[in-house]
C-alpha cells in the first residue's frame, strides 16, 4: 500500500510539473503588453519589467518561474487585474466566496441526490420514477448556465424574490444568503441529477441480485433487506463520486460565477483570460490542476483501500 501511494504521488508531481511547464510556455509565449498605463513613465516601466525578468530570454524566465514556485511559493505578480499584487494573494482572497457557494451546494445536494435516486429505484416504473427520471434527464442535459440565466430572469427580474447578483456585503446574513441561493441552486442541479441517476441504476441492480433474494428467504422484511443489504452496497461507488465534490469545493464554476458576479475563482479565471493578465492565468491554471490532481489522488487511494483489486500499477 505504501509503495502504491508513493507511486501515485510521483505520478501526481510529474503531472503537476507538466501542467506548470505547459501553462508557462503556452501562455507566456503569447504576445502581451504588460504595462499600458500612460501615466507611468517609460523608465519606471522598464525598471518594473526588469524586476520581473521580462527582458531575459524565455528559458531564463522559465528558470526564474520554476525557482520562484519551488523555493518561495511565488507565482508572480499580477499586471492587469490587480496590478502590483502578488498573484498568490489574489487567489487566496477569492477562495472564501467560492468555497461558501460550493459548500452550501454540497450541503443541499447530497441528501437530495441520495433521496431522489433511492425513491426512483424503489418505486421503479411507477409515475414517481418516471417524473424523477424525466427531471434527471432535463437537469443532466440542459447546461447549467442556461438554468442560471433562466432563474436569474424569472426569480430575480420578472418575479423579484431574489437579488440578481451575488452580494456578500448585504446588510444582514439572511440577505447575503438570499443572494447566494440562485447560484447555489444553479450549481447543484447537474450534480444532483448525475448522482441520482447513478444511484438509481446501482440500486436497481443490487435489488435484483441474488443475495437480496437470500436476505428475503432468510426472513428479512423487504424494508430490512433493502436498507441493510441493497442500500449500503450501492453507496460504496457513490462514496467515490462524492470525494471529487468535496475537494472540488475550492474551484469555482467559471460560467455561473460570471453570470451571478460572484467574486470567486471561476470569475477570476475568466477575467484574467479576457483581460490578458498572463501571470494570473498561469497561476490559476496551476491552482485548478492542483485541486483536480489531489482529487484524483484521494479517489485512487480510497479505491485502493476499498477495493484492493483496483490498485493501478500495484504488484499483483
Amino acid at each position: 500500500m505504501f509503495k502504491y501511494v508513493l507511486g501515485r504521488i510521483g505520478a501526481m508531481l510529474l503531472t503537476l510539473f507538466l501542467v506548470m511547464t505547459l501553462s508557462f510556455w503556452v501562455i507566456r509565449l503569447m504576445p502581451m503588453t504588460i504595462f499600458e498605463n500612460p501615466e507611468v513613465s517609460p523608465e519606471v516601466q522598464r525598471r518594473l519589467e526588469d524586476r520581473m525578468h521580462l527582458h531575459e530570454p524565455m528559458i531564463v524566465q522559465y528558470y526564474y518561474f520554476m525557482k520562484g514556485i519551488v523555493t518561495k511559493g511565488d507565482f508572480g505578480t499580477s499586471v492587469k487585474i490587480r496590478p502590483g499584487l502578488q498573484v498568490f494573494d489574489i487567489i487566496k482572497e477569492r477562495i472564501p466566496p467560492t468555497m461558501l457557494l460550493n459548500f452550501f451546494s454540497l450541503l443541499i445536494s447530497i441528501p437530495l441526490r441520495i433521496l431522489s435516486g433511492t425513491i426512483a429505484a424503489l418505486k421503479r416504473n411507477t409515475w414517481i420514477d418516471n417524473v424523477i427520471s424525466f427531471l434527471i434527464v432535463i437537469f443532466i442535459s440542459v447546461p447549467s448556465f442556461v438554468f442560471a440565466s433562466l432563474m436569474q430572469y424569472v426569480f430575480a427580474y420578472a418575479w423579484p424574490i431574489f437579488p440578481t447578483l451575488y452580494n456578500a456585503q448585504a446588510p444582514t446574513i439572511w440577505a447575503a444568503f438570499r443572494s447566494m441561493l440562485l447560484p447555489i441552486i444553479a450549481l447543484s442541479l447537474n450534480p444532483i441529477a448525475t448522482i441520482a441517476r447513478y444511484l438509481r441504476g446501482e440500486l436497481i441492480e443490487t435489488l435484483s441480485s441474488e443475495y437480496m433474494l437470500l436476505a428475503r428467504t432468510k426472513g428479512l422484511t423487504r424494508q430490512e433487506a433493502t436498507w441493510r443489504h441493497a442500500f449500503r452496497n450501492s453507496l460504496v461507488p457513490i462514496a467515490n463520486t462524492i470525494i471529487p465534490l468535496i475537494t472540488g469545493i475550492m474551484g469555482g464554476s467559471l460560467v455561473i460565477e460570471k453570470i451571478f458576479a460572484v467574486p470567486g475563482e471561476g470569475g477570476l479565471l475568466v477575467d484574467s483570460i479576457l483581460g490578458g493578465d498572463h501571470f494570473l492565468t498561469v497561476a490559476l491554471l496551476i491552482f485548478y490542476s492542483m485541486i483536480s490532481l489531489v482529487t484524483i489522488f484521494v479517489v485512487d487511494v480510497s479505491y485502493g483501500i476499498i477495493d484492493p483489486r483496483i490498485r493501478i500499477g500495484g504488484t499483483k
Binding site: A11, L18, V26, I27, S289, I291, L293, I312
Partner: peptide
C-alpha cells in the same frame, strides 16, 4: 496506458483553455 493516464490527469478545463489560448 500510462501515457494516457498522465494526459488524463490534466484537468479538462485547464487543457482546453491552454489549447484555446495557444
Amino acid at each position: 496506458t500510462h501515457l494516457a493516464e498522465v494526459l488524463d490527469g490534466l484537468p479538462y478545463i485547464v487543457v482546453t483553455i491552454l489549447f484555446m489560448l495557444w
